[in-house]
Simulated assay, not measured.
Amino acid sequence: MANEKVLIVDDEASVRKLIKKSFARENILTFEATCGKEALEMLLTNSFDLIILDIMMKDMDGLEVLKKIRGLGMNIPILLLSGKAEDYDQILGLGIGADDYITKPFSPSILCARVKAHIRRNIDMMNSKKSTLVINQGPFEFNLNEYKLYKNGMEIILSTKETMLMKFFLENPNRIFSKEQLYQKVWGDTIIDDNSIMVYIRHLRMKTEDNPKIPKYIQTVWGIGYKFVIE
């Protein structure tokens, strides 16, 4: 990891200065907000890898800021700072969406280690989530969350059946399937309609191939069926 962006939200200049100085040695970029309102405004126009959020602030306490951030649907890691060490405050903070809780005074090195661990964990989680929600094959990308197909970054509009068929091809590249197998696996029916298969294959070729008359991806295997080819 390098050049991670951390937003420090604290109304004490000395605390912000201490954190900024220790993070600079680790090549962590720091940005400062002196109050909750300023932090929320910065979050609307900037992206950060983690937020260090003080609880006790004059304009808006950190717990209220935390609620608003989570209410906006932001899943950025948030580490709370507080002069209170009571279990109640920690449980409350963690319960409304904080990822960690550190009491003042704190060790800058320990704070830095926790910040790096949370950023690394969040990156790993996002990468894992992305890999499970997207099928990538050649120039094609299929978003399993939105059920949308993209080719070279451009969305291809498909009908429901075309989407199901293309998803099946992308999940099974370079394998030959008979018309019967496609109909059973995609349509879930044992009554085969050869004409329907041919129509949907033709539609998919028109939408996905550079030259539908000479298909590169959805190829006919004469006498057997079709194969979705990815080199």
Rank of each mutant, 00 (worst) to 15 (best):
N145P: 10
I123M: 10
E141H: 11
D99L: 06
I78V: 15
L144P: 14
F168S: 06
N145T: 14
Y183I: 12
I123R: 15
L149G: 07
G188S: 02
V115Q: 04
P173Q: 09
N127D: 14
I96L: 13
K151V: 06
K104M: 08
I91M: 05
P77D: 08
Y183T: 13
L144D: 14
I156P: 04
I102N: 04
I176M: 04
M164Y: 10
G71A: 01
L165F: 13
Y88G: 00
R114I: 14
Q137C: 15
T103F: 01
L94F: 14
W187K: 01
G138M: 09
K84H: 13
A117L: 12
I176W: 02
Y147G: 00
S82W: 00
I123K: 15
R70Q: 00
I176V: 13
R70T: 06
M164T: 06
P105D: 07
P77K: 02
I91S: 06
D99W: 07
K129H: 15
E155Y: 01
I135H: 14
L133E: 15
K68E: 12
L94S: 13
R70A: 09
E171Q: 15
V134G: 02
I157P: 00
N127T: 13
L165K: 06
L165R: 08
I156H: 02
K116I: 06
I123P: 03
D189C: 03
Q90V: 10
K116W: 04
I119S: 05
W187Q: 03
N174D: 06
P108W: 01
T163H: 03
C112M: 03
G83R: 06
K151Q: 04
C112S: 10
I119K: 03
N127H: 11
L170S: 08
S159L: 05
E141K: 14
N152F: 06
V115I: 09
W187F: 11
A98Q: 12
A117K: 12
M154A: 05
F177L: 11
G138S: 10
L158Y: 10
R120H: 07
I91E: 06
L79V: 14
N127C: 12
I156F: 05
N75D: 13
D87F: 05
P173G: 07
E155G: 04
Y183P: 03
I91R: 01
Y101D: 14
L81V: 00
E180N: 11
F168L: 05
D89G: 05
M154Y: 08
S178A: 13
K148A: 09
T103R: 07
Q181G: 10
D189V: 07
A98R: 01
I102Q: 02
Q184L: 11
I157F: 11
M166A: 02
L92T: 09
K104Y: 08
L92D: 08
A113M: 02
M125E: 15
W187E: 10
L94G: 13
R120P: 07
F168P: 07
E171I: 04
Q181F: 09
K179R: 14
P173L: 03
I135E: 12
L80E: 08
R121V: 12
L158D: 06
V186C: 11
F106N: 08
A113S: 05
G153I: 03
S107W: 01
